[in-house]
């Protein structure tokens, strides 16, 4: 919602969904709310927004599920704070918690990708009475460090270094454009149907702040700001018994499945998968319908077990 009170609407043939807004934790948060049934919450990360799940909404809602797709505060159609200090990992978990409590969701399946992992799992592990299952894709939930890639100066640490981040990712929108392009398998299709949408939703440098702020929250050493929260995530996740499905991109070089899906499997030995699909980090772009089908079948199996 703009300062005028006007609802922000994104008109696009691939995104025919009504906008919904809640004020949560001091910010206006946008979400899509389609279908009826047990809720499935689809959580994006950096620098995406709900559009990443455009191929999930119809198959999941058609299968009798309520599909909630929030835009993280700072992305998509949600309010975009203009100061880096407005963004903290705990604050983003609190944003999501505020939204899902206002919607009074119960029996929710949390579908977690990228920073939707630490935030969505943070919600699930602190609101276990509202959650019934997890789907985990290309993310992490433990300290130090997520991947070898994140320790390297070229390109990762350089990309978000002081002043370089605001210039490269702010002035030049490098992550929503070229960055996502490099992180899909079918780049021609991505460029044709999606890249301009991800770039256009972050229209000016001020709106792109979170694209270089999130990378700075990845713990790289013992002094990192988010370290204690990640230690808590790992500790609590290891104790959790949520039915879980792991889905990973076969071509994901950053959160490679051999390292990351395997580690989740160690934390959650009862998890199904990892089920591998065509995809790099943004596997939803390459295999959206296929992953939605896997989620439907996974939830059908849970329903069968519970009936």
């Amino acid at each position: 919602m703009e300062a005028s009170g006007e609802v922000r609407r994104f008109a696009h043939q691939q995104w025919p969904y009504e906008p919904n807004y809640k004020r949560v934790n001091g910010w206006q948060m946008h979400y899509v709310d389609e279908g009826v049934g047990n809720p499935v919450v689809l959580l994006h990360g950096n620098p995406a927004w709900g559009f990443l799940y455009r191929k999930f909404v119809k198959p999941l809602s058609a299968a009798g599920r309520r599909v909630i797709v929030p835009d993280m505060v700072g992305f998509g159609l949600s309010e975009k704070p203009v100061r880096e200090q407005a963004h903290t990992l705990d604050g983003h978990i609190a944003n999501l918690t505020g939204l899902l409590r206002q919607l009074d969701l119960r029996n929710a399946t949390m579908v977690c990708h990228d920073w939707g992992g630490p935030t969505g799992l943070g919600f699930a592990l602190s609101n276990s009475d509202r959650v019934r299952a997890l789907v985990i894709m290309s993310t992490w939930a433990w300290p130090l460090p997520p991947a070898e890639f994140h320790k390297r100066i070229f390109p990762w640490r350089m990309m978000h270094a002081p002043l370089v981040g605001p210039y490269l990712l702010g002035h030049h929108n490098a992550l929503a454009g070229r960055g996502m392009y490099l992180s899909v398998v079918d780049r021609k299709k991505f460029r044709a149907e999606a890249q301009s949408v991800y770039e256009g939703i972050l229209p000016d440098p001020g709106s792109r702040l979170l694209t270089w702020t999130w990378p700075r929250w990845i713990p790289l050493d013992e002094s990192a700001r988010g370290l204690a929260r990640f230690e808590w995530l790992e500790r609590e996740l290891r104790k959790s018994k949520f039915p879980t499905l792991l889905v990973w991109g076969r071509e994901d070089e950053v959160f490679d499945h051999a390292t990351f899906a395997t580690r989740f499997k160690e934390l959650l030995p009862h998890a199904e998968g990892p089920e591998l699909v065509t995809g790099r980090h943004f596997l939803q772009e390459d295999s959206g319908e296929e992953i939605a089908g896997k989620i439907n079948r996974f939830l059908d199996r849970i329903d069968g077990k519970q009936s």
């Binding site: 100066i153 070229f154 390109p155 350089m158 990309m159 270094a161 370089v164 490269l168 030049h172 490098a174 070229r178 960055g179 490099l182």
Partner: peptide
């Protein structure tokens, strides 16, 4: 130190500046 201009240049080229 470990920060080198060549790495910045390579990052700029990667992102097609």
């Amino acid at each position: 130190g470990e920060w080198r201009v060549e790495q910045l240049d390579a990052t700029g080229r990667l992102y097609q500046l």
